[in-house]
């Protein structure tokens, strides 16, 4: 077995479960520590938006009992913990009686789709461009062009999103301003639908990509420069191998693994950036869900989406940690 020992797996999974447990507890504590009563706040805010609601006090009290907010805090915590690990998030306050799990089930595929595709592209192109950027044989003029593509690297993703929106959706009208697919197509495995999903997802993906790809490019460039001086690369040259073969098989191949680690570490930033981008493009994913839930003061949804984001981040970091020893023959955990 390639470097992956049971001891390591158990320890890593243990840490993972502990993270989940602590985050559930924190979500519970924070949502109770926020001043004001969530049901009351939500209904009063509705009243502020929509005018007087008849019998609002009766309604508020009814829902408080219904949502178990009048129970002792320890009972609430126990139930919350038990339900959360079963992916039972109760019902939305603002969209009562829609189960929060239904809302998440609808939103999650969009977020995962957008996020994974974007991450894949960032990894592929970021490392490809970074390798070319760092390669000593790349013509100078290409090396001067590359940084202009990384312009957005130090700005928040929401600004990039607004920027792209105003140029390509508002002014040029090449892409839609909002949504996930056109109302003229029928969802399913048909080409018009898939093409529409790609068209609608293009700008959101590009916003995330533009902001995040720079660090991958720079990381790869640094790795390629460093590894370019390694003995085995020089030996590969002495072997009379073709330069591009050396770049891919010797330099990049060895640089990819540290890049994978840094990808895992940047996961949190990538996801939080996506939340804002989704809300700008009204993309129906988890980011939009949490954005709306905060606006609607919908506590169960806020709790559930926060938990899902933590779960996604923690799981991807866990997966990369577990996969790493399998990919990199040098790493052995726990053994030796």
């Amino acid at each position: 077995m390639n470097g992956l020992t049971w001891k390591y797996v158990l320890r890593r999974v243990g840490i993972y479960l502990l993270t989940i447990f602590i985050s559930i507890t924190l979500i519970f504590i924070i949502s109770r520590a926020v001043p004001g009563d969530p049901v009351e706040t939500m209904w009063r805010q509705l009243e502020m938006q929509k005018g007087q609601i008849e019998e609002i006090d009766v309604i508020i009290d009814h829902y408080k009992t219904l949502f178990g907010l009048n129970e002792p805090i320890t009972v609430q915590y126990g139930k919350f913990l038990w339900n959360t690990i079963h992916f039972e998030f109760g019902v939305s306050y603002a969209h009562y009686p829609t189960p929060v799990s239904t809302m998440i089930k609808n939103a999650l595929p969009w977020t995962l789709g957008l996020g994974l595709v974007t991450m894949f592209i960032i990894f592929l192109f970021g490392n490809g461009i970074g390798a070319i950027f760092g390669w000593e044989r790349t013509p100078k003029f290409i090396k001067t062009i590359i940084p202009s593509g990384l312009l957005f690297t130090s700005i928040p993703s929401v600004l990039a999103a607004l920027f792209l929106l105003s140029i390509f959706a508002k002014n040029l009208g090449w892409f839609p301003l909002a949504g996930a697919y056109s109302n003229e197509v029928t969802p399913g495995w048909n080409w018009p639908y898939i093409a529409s999903v790609i068209k609608y997802g293009f700008l959101p993906a590009l916003s995330i990509l533009m902001v995040n790809i720079g660090w991958t490019v720079l990381g790869m460039r640094a790795m390629v420069v460093t590894i370019g001086g390694a003995d085995y690369v020089r030996l590969a040259e002495a072997k009379g191998l073709k330069p591009f073969y050396i770049l891919t098989q010797y330099t990049v191949r060895n640089a990819l693994l540290p890049q994978l680690t840094s990808l895992a570490l940047s996961m949190g930033g990538l996801i939080s950036g996506q939340v804002l981008v989704e809300s700008v493009f009204s993309y129906p994913g988890m980011g939009m869900l949490i954005f709306r839930a905060i606006r609607e003061q919908d506590f169960p949804v806020i709790q559930a989406t926060s938990f899902m984001f933590i779960l996604i981040t923690a799981t991807s970091v866990l997966l990369i940690d577990l996969l790493y020893p399998l990919i990199d023959p040098r790493i052995t955990h726990g053994g030796e």
Binding site: D231, Y232, Q249, Y250, D328, P329
Partner: peptide
């Protein structure tokens, strides 16, 4: 330096 003259991932 025999340690580094071989590609570690090949």
């Amino acid at each position: 330096g025999s340690m580094n003259s071989l590609n570690p991932t090949m």
